[in-house]
Design a protein around this nucleic acid. Structure first.
Lengths: 112, 112
DNA sequence: CTCGTACTCAACTGAAAGGTTGAATACGGA
DNA sequence: TCCGTATTCAACCTTTCAGTTGAGTACGAG
């Protein structure tokens, strides 16, 4: 099951700092130091955040001398949208079925 | 800012039990007792889970005598997909721009 | 082979999450 | 009005999480 994976992805994105990191990585790769710079928290804290994103599969990292450039893995988003769309669609289907039933009731009433 | 809202939505869906509840509600409304039935945990625990989903805006509830039927609010999914798609698109754009640059380099090399 | 840079690891702290049980509360039915 | 059903509230426990500081590691430059 990749339910565990999905849990990690959602949990990772529940934190505003981590969402911001993802947002910034969507504009291009960056090192830990670069990513940490705008935040008030310690470099170590940001390093931990990146680890969480990495464990969720949202981020991969390379090596460039002592730097560890972070790269956003956009494919993981598919896992989320897949999950979301499945249930959204189901809910909407049900909604339109209800809609149809109500319309039918209206028609019958009008006909009677 | 609705960043806080987004945090609550993602956090709510980080829990497998809550995701399962959402999945089941996508098939139709249900009471707390009905939702709790398949799980090992206490009814109170499920009641708490539902409250988290409610606070995130994923679920609303009516009243039917002593029952509190839960209803899935599919619109909140749009908030998530909106966020996700924004950064996915940005990342993909960047990717195709890089692709174009590499292709250009190839062409120049071929021409030289 | 040092030295500074870029980071990670380890140990600790406070707050929040998810679970429990037991006591309220809200309502319909007899 | 009293009872049972459905659900929530309250207090508590344990684990996880986000943050801290201080020490350790990995690498390139000089």
């Amino acid at each position: 099951m990749d339910g565990d994976r999905l849990s990690r992805v959602f949990a990772a994105l529940a934190d505003p700092t981590r969402r911001d990191i993802v947002a910034r990585l969507s504009a291009g790769d960056a090192t830990v130091g670069e990513l940490a710079e705008p935040y008030q928290v310690s470099l170590q804290a940001v390093s931990k955040h990146i680890r969480v994103l990495e464990d969720a599969g949202l981020v991969t990292r390379g090596r460039d001398a002592q730097r560890r450039p972070c790269h956003l893995e956009a494919e993981v988003f598919d896992l989320m949208t897949g999950w979301i769309e499945r249930y959204r669609r189901q809910a909407e289907e049900r909604f339109s079925r209800l809609d149809a039933v109500l319309k039918d009731l209206d028609n019958e009433e009008g006909a009677a």
